[in-house]
Design a binder for these strands. Sequence first.
DNA 1: GCCGTTTTCGGCCCGACTGTTTTCAGTCG
Length: 578
Amino acid sequence: MENREIARMFSDIADILEIKEDNVFKIRAYRKAALNLDGLTRDLAELSHKELLEIPGVGADLAAKIEEYLQTGAMALHDKLKEEIPAGVFTLLAVPDLGPKTAKAIYDGLQVTSLEELERAANEHRLIGIRGIQQKTEENILRGIASVKRGRERQPLGHMLPAALDLVAALKSRAPLERIEIAGSIRRRVDCVKDIDIVATSPDPERVMDAFVNLPQVQTITMRGPTRASVAIREGVQVDLRVVEAESFGAALAYLTGSKPHNVRLREMAVKRGMKINEYGIFRDEDNERLGGANEEDVYRLLGLPFVPPELREDRGEIEAALAGALPQLVTLADIRGDLHVHSKWSDGAHSIAALAEAARQRGLRYLAVTDHSQGLAVARGLTAERLREQALEIEAWNREHKDFRVLHGTEMDIQNDGSLDFPDEVLKKLDIVVASIHSGFAHDRERMTARIVAAMRNPWVSIIAHPTGRLIGEREAYQVDMEQVLQVAGETGTALEINCYPLRLDLNDRYARRAKELGVTVAINTDTHASLQFDTLSYGVSVAQRGWLEKSDVLNALELPELLKRLAAKRKRAGNP
DNA sequence: GCCGTTTTCGGCCCGACTGTTTTCAGTCG
């Protein structure tokens, strides 16, 4: 997947052009294209010239640069610009509040080309005197360097959403609030987020600001004005709070929810219709008359659009779909009928099958599949074929006793290094469902990894591929795999792909989920529960599905039990097995 | 550099806060 690499190159070009004080709109064009490439569901290498031009923000010139890179492995403009400006200069841009102008001035004045040199220069007070820098700015730069060193850029949604909810609760208990919402990428349910945005209304904004910057979670106050404040909480996570008038709440919420490219599109549409959108509302140009803004719906209504759910706001086609009245009816948590990937005490889970079934039923589910690990995964106490037979007896007995909930018998079977499976077909055919996945040999090359997964999908008894890319957010990159091929074969063979709900996995991610839908591949939203409390992570997987535009009909475990069983049987039949 | 329900040329989203200014530039979201 060269998308990310090319996006990064465009972003580098934008940075350098900014330092060189080139045309701001040209810079913006490179940034916009970089963002859009990052959000693409397809590999650039697979797209025709015509398809490249259809990418928003990519015209003849940038399409040529993409093709140049795909064909030669290099981009002449990128290389040339990097020669002009030492690489270290734009590493300075990583420092908060230090932008291109300051980076250039510091480089011109002191030839500083790395963070270490910058830190030394600041400690020796050599920055003072450079255009626009006095003591305060120098101190801020030192603080900024410290925060860069602390690192931890983005954190998983599974950590940040609870932290945000915690802040909201704390704020509510300490200041008078009317409305308060978490906005930003958390509200869009992006799987990995950088900061926390909160928007609120209050009869006493001043007190809210006071309470906010004095919250026990707060470590440093970055900025504090009458309507806006910014702080850092533990682990250096930035939290922004905006307090607005009630008549502006919806506009502010929309603005702070983003995404930025989505907002830019809305504002452009407003301009064309003789209106202006900002965080205070939506206004008529001619007389500055307020047309709306108290509620988020106003913004969309006044542009002639249906409400666009936050999960879709990425400028990945949602505005066009809204204009055409073709927004998807997104799958919801309430649509989920069961969980098809669950571990019990039989392998590495914490709870009995009975306890798991009860916990699932309490959450409104109607079935679950017990899919303990297979024998090859010894560290997880994987089951042999014989233990699997014993387990079947326990499940049969439980089902005989309970008529309002169904436990399916399955396995999470290892796909071995050579692409073979951990159980023979004779074992698999006795199970209700077979989940296959990779737990070892992550370092194999792309061809081999792809071949392993494809081979598993071609087995008629394999129902679902679990956590198809193997990533662990912040801990382990996805293994090298040709996901386009995996998705294609999933479609051909009628194999479902999983969105794993574990907050560090969320695998498939939103983009692959969207591509799955495009290819007609069914997706299963599974918790991979190892302890009954983990059923609560279902909402994270549903969010990924929503960001992937999935509807109820795209989701395997949104089916009622009889339809699910039919669907599972369909692949076996297609392969000529009863 | 991109783009077209006023346009193939002339536009291109909008505002808060800080630090350094004595009216505003830089940065960020």
